[in-house]
């Protein structure tokens, strides 16, 4: 097994890393301290490791780091910060959508992917969009509220612009 130098573009930052082929994108991201990307099952069952890869949400545990060489990767932490949170992050905090928080980063990335495609989703569409992200604390309702709140807010902002 030979290591190779690859480039991971994460949240707008370029990382040159030399990795073995059997390293998953999840492992690579966490080693680069993107610890908002969580390890919950390593087989695509829970969605805690969800990130955007070239604009599509995926389970980073089921992608090899080499397969992401040169791709655009976006994690929840790339959306906003404590000082300047993304509207989804803000809404999640306000709506009670965050309990233990372990599913939250994956959930927000899934919600963001939905709103990118569909700025005004129905409850059914939201449930579908987050159906690959397990949450054991909330029963999902406040998460759905948060997504709806964000959609409304973002549409209002757009209307004002």
């Amino acid at each position: 097994m030979k290591a190779k130098a690859i480039t991971l573009n994460v949240n707008g930052r370029r990382h040159q890393v030399t990795l073995f082929p059997n390293v998953t994108l999840l492992e690579a991201l966490r080693d680069l301290n993107y610890t908002d990307v969580k390890n919950g099952c390593e087989k695509g069952d829970c969605g805690a490791c969800a990130v955007e890869l070239n604009g599509r949400i995926i389970n980073s545990c089921l992608v090899l780091a080499w397969q992401a060489d040169g791709a655009r990767i976006l994690t929840n932490a790339g959306l906003g910060t404590m000082e300047s949170p993304h509207p989804l992050q803000e809404a999640f905090a306000d709506a009670g959508a965050v309990q233990c928080g372990y599913c939250t980063s994956g959930m927000i990335i899934a919600a963001k992917a939905l709103l990118d495609e569909n700025p005004n989703p129905s409850e059914t569409e939201i449930r579908e969009a987050i159906s690959g992200n397990l949450c054991r604390c909330t029963g999902y309702s406040q998460i759905i509220n948060a997504v709806q709140m964000t959609a409304e807010k973002m549409m209002q902002q757009k209307a004002q612009e």
Binding site: D36, A93, T104
Partner: peptide, 19 residues
């Protein structure tokens, strides 16, 4: 009110045991 621990978890900066 917004929970004191909510925003850190929402933006992904809360550090968990495995981190």
């Amino acid at each position: 009110l917004r929970r004191v621990d909510a925003l850190g978890k929402a933006v992904g900066t809360t550090v968990y045991a495995g981190d």
